[in-house]
Design a protein around this nucleic acid. Structure first.
Length: 222
DNA sequence: ACCCAGGGTCATA
DNA sequence: TATGACCATGGG
């Protein structure tokens, strides 16, 4: 079945098991990781989060009062440190001043929360959806580079569709529960990190859609 | 010495 | 609406 995203979900879940995402010790730490991981290897994000934790800045109140130069020094390993320091400050200040807390924001509608997130500097569609899904428990699917790569190598999408088109495409083909949507995204990341490099290992990989990086999972029996 | 990593903003056409 | 420059560290 071509384009059977739900079937791919079941297969990934069977192969890897539940991923228990997002990797973070608190909902606020999750949102910090979402900003820090923008175009950045996760290992470097962990280093930056470790620095913020040791310095005591992993709460909205402390972070919103921190100086930009201090945050920039602490998140240095994650790259783009000046931009990210400003983004973290803007986000934490907004959270404290406008939403009060993530727990309070949970009671509000996803659509409203999403518009307000997108209005912030440094929070684009993927970062906003990550926060909605994993910190706020909303039924939203997160589209990232791994999602595009896997689905396009399977031949199900071209890969250059606008973000919101792909999100709608995925959400319409998956279970509507927020837990399932978050789990699916986590599984795609897990699979891509292990098997689906940007530069395919074998020449025919992309054209044939038959090598391990994409085809193996859907062609397994079941 | 390359290429790459769980993006986003801004200027330009 | 759609490209391109820019942001920057660390691993392979």
């Amino acid at each position: 079945m071509r384009g059977d995203l739900r079937r791919l979900y079941r297969k990934l879940l069977g192969r890897y098991g539940s991923q228990g995402w997002w990797p973070a010790r608190s909902a606020f730490e999750m949102t910090v990781g979402a900003i820090l991981t923008q175009n950045t290897a996760w290992l470097n994000v962990e280093r930056a989060i470790g620095g913020l934790r040791r310095a005591g800045y992993l709460s909205p109140e402390r972070m919103s009062r921190a100086r930009a130069a201090t945050l920039a020094r602490l998140v240095r390993p994650a790259g783009y440190f000046n931009q990210k320091a400003a983004r973290l400050r803007g986000w934490s200040k907004f959270l404290v001043d406008e939403w009060g807390s993530l727990a309070r924001a949970k009671r509000r509608r996803a659509g409203e929360l999403r518009s307000e997130l997108l209005a912030l500097k440094g929070i684009g569609p993927e970062t906003a959806d990550s926060i909605l899904c994993y910190a706020l428990g909303k039924p939203v699917f997160v589209v990232d580079a791994y999602t595009r790569r896997i689905l396009s190598r399977l031949g199900w999408i071209s890969g250059d569709e606008p973000y919101d088109d792909l999100r709608a495409w995925c959400e319409s083909r998956l279970p509507a529960e927020s837990g399932d949507l978050g789990e699916m995204h986590a599984l795609l990341v897990r699979h891509a990190k292990e098997h689906c490099r940007k530069r395919p290992v074998c020449d025919g990989c992309v054209a044939a859609r038959s090598c391990e990086c994409a085809g193996a999972v859907v062609s397994e029996g079941g």
